[in-house]
Measured scan of single mutants.
Amino acid sequence: ILQTYRAIANYEKTSGSEMALSTGDVVEVVEKSESGWWFCQMKAKRGWIPASFLEPLDSPDETEDP
Rank of each mutant, 00 (worst) to 15 (best):
27 V>N: 00
1 I>A: 07
15 S>I: 08
4 T>V: 11
10 N>I: 04
35 S>D: 13
47 G>P: 01
16 G>T: 15
23 T>K: 15
66 P>H: 08
9 A>C: 12
52 S>N: 12
46 R>I: 05
65 D>R: 10
5 Y>P: 01
29 V>M: 01
7 A>C: 09
8 I>M: 08
39 F>V: 03
3 Q>N: 15
29 V>C: 06
54 L>Q: 00
60 P>E: 10
1 I>R: 08
10 N>W: 01
63 T>P: 12
2 L>Q: 15
26 V>E: 08
42 M>F: 10
5 Y>Q: 01
48 W>E: 01
18 E>Y: 04
54 L>F: 03
21 L>A: 02
48 W>S: 02
43 K>V: 07
22 S>Y: 05
64 E>Q: 14
5 Y>D: 02
49 I>G: 01
12 E>P: 10
34 E>F: 05
44 A>T: 14
28 E>S: 07
65 D>Y: 10
50 P>W: 03
19 M>L: 10
66 P>M: 06
26 V>L: 13
49 I>F: 05
45 K>Q: 14
38 W>Y: 10
60 P>T: 14
60 P>G: 14
58 D>A: 13
42 M>Q: 13
23 T>A: 15
9 A>Y: 09
33 S>L: 12
62 E>Y: 10
5 Y>M: 08
15 S>E: 11
46 R>K: 15
44 A>W: 08
20 A>W: 04
7 A>V: 11
19 M>V: 04
54 L>D: 01
10 N>E: 09
26 V>G: 01
42 M>D: 10
4 T>S: 13
55 E>L: 06
29 V>P: 01
13 K>F: 06
35 S>H: 10
62 E>A: 13
31 E>S: 10
34 E>V: 09
43 K>N: 14
30 V>Q: 08
42 M>Y: 09
15 S>V: 07
14 T>G: 10
21 L>M: 06
11 Y>L: 09
16 G>W: 08
30 V>N: 03
23 T>D: 07
16 G>P: 15
31 E>H: 10
6 R>V: 09
48 W>L: 05
58 D>P: 14
24 G>V: 00
63 T>E: 14
1 I>Y: 10
59 S>E: 14
61 D>I: 13
59 S>L: 11
17 S>W: 09
34 E>N: 11
53 F>K: 10
28 E>T: 10
40 C>Y: 01
61 D>L: 13
45 K>A: 12
52 S>P: 06
4 T>D: 05
18 E>I: 04
33 S>W: 05
37 W>V: 07
29 V>R: 01
47 G>M: 04
27 V>Q: 02
56 P>H: 06
40 C>T: 02
52 S>W: 09
60 P>K: 13
3 Q>V: 11
35 S>R: 08
12 E>H: 11
52 S>R: 14
2 L>D: 15
59 S>C: 13
28 E>R: 06
38 W>H: 03
57 L>Y: 15
45 K>H: 10
16 G>I: 14
1 I>H: 03
32 K>A: 04
51 A>L: 04
29 V>H: 01
50 P>H: 06
44 A>D: 15
52 S>F: 06
32 K>M: 06
46 R>M: 07
39 F>C: 06
22 S>T: 06
49 I>C: 15
60 P>F: 11
22 S>A: 03
42 M>L: 11
19 M>H: 02
33 S>A: 10
39 F>Q: 04
9 A>K: 15
53 F>Y: 15
5 Y>V: 04
6 R>L: 04
33 S>N: 13
2 L>P: 09
55 E>I: 09
66 P>E: 07
53 F>M: 12
37 W>A: 04
52 S>E: 12
51 A>R: 08
47 G>D: 03
27 V>C: 04
33 S>H: 13
1 I>M: 15
2 L>M: 15
35 S>Y: 07
64 E>C: 13
42 M>I: 08
5 Y>R: 02
13 K>C: 12
27 V>D: 01
46 R>V: 08
25 D>I: 00
6 R>F: 03
58 D>W: 11
32 K>T: 05
31 E>M: 09
37 W>Y: 12
37 W>G: 02
41 Q>I: 07
47 G>V: 02
32 K>H: 03
21 L>Y: 01
61 D>P: 14
3 Q>K: 15
66 P>L: 06
17 S>P: 06
51 A>S: 14
40 C>P: 00
39 F>W: 09
2 L>R: 15
3 Q>P: 09
13 K>E: 07
18 E>Q: 15
47 G>N: 01
24 G>A: 02
37 W>T: 04
47 G>A: 04
44 A>Q: 15
57 L>N: 11
49 I>E: 00
57 L>W: 13
45 K>P: 01
34 E>A: 12
18 E>T: 09
19 M>E: 01
48 W>V: 02
45 K>T: 13
14 T>C: 09
13 K>H: 07
5 Y>S: 03
6 R>I: 09
3 Q>S: 15
39 F>H: 08
42 M>T: 13
59 S>I: 13
43 K>Q: 12
51 A>W: 05
6 R>P: 00
46 R>G: 06
18 E>V: 05
23 T>N: 08
27 V>P: 02
23 T>F: 11
59 S>T: 13
3 Q>A: 12
20 A>D: 12
24 G>P: 01
62 E>S: 13
55 E>Q: 10
25 D>S: 03
49 I>A: 11
39 F>R: 06
63 T>Q: 15
10 N>T: 10
49 I>K: 00
52 S>I: 09
44 A>Y: 09
18 E>N: 07
53 F>E: 03
26 V>D: 02
38 W>T: 00
19 M>S: 00
7 A>Y: 03
39 F>N: 05
50 P>D: 04
61 D>E: 14
7 A>K: 00
9 A>G: 13
46 R>E: 11
13 K>T: 14
28 E>F: 04
59 S>R: 13
55 E>W: 04
64 E>F: 12
46 R>D: 05
65 D>S: 13
38 W>A: 04
58 D>M: 09
30 V>L: 15
10 N>Q: 06
40 C>V: 12
64 E>N: 14
44 A>N: 15
26 V>R: 08
17 S>L: 09
48 W>G: 00
45 K>E: 14
17 S>M: 11
51 A>V: 04
62 E>K: 14
5 Y>H: 05
57 L>C: 15
57 L>G: 05
16 G>Q: 15
41 Q>T: 10
56 P>G: 05
42 M>G: 12
12 E>Y: 10
33 S>Y: 07
16 G>L: 13
36 G>W: 03
15 S>D: 12
49 I>H: 02
22 S>P: 12
39 F>A: 02
61 D>G: 13
40 C>K: 00
21 L>K: 00
7 A>M: 05
7 A>F: 03
37 W>H: 05
35 S>E: 04
51 A>E: 09
43 K>D: 15
24 G>H: 03
38 W>N: 02
27 V>R: 01
47 G>W: 00
32 K>R: 09
28 E>N: 08
45 K>L: 09
5 Y>W: 06
48 W>C: 02
61 D>C: 13
58 D>S: 13
6 R>T: 05
6 R>M: 06
29 V>L: 08
51 A>D: 05
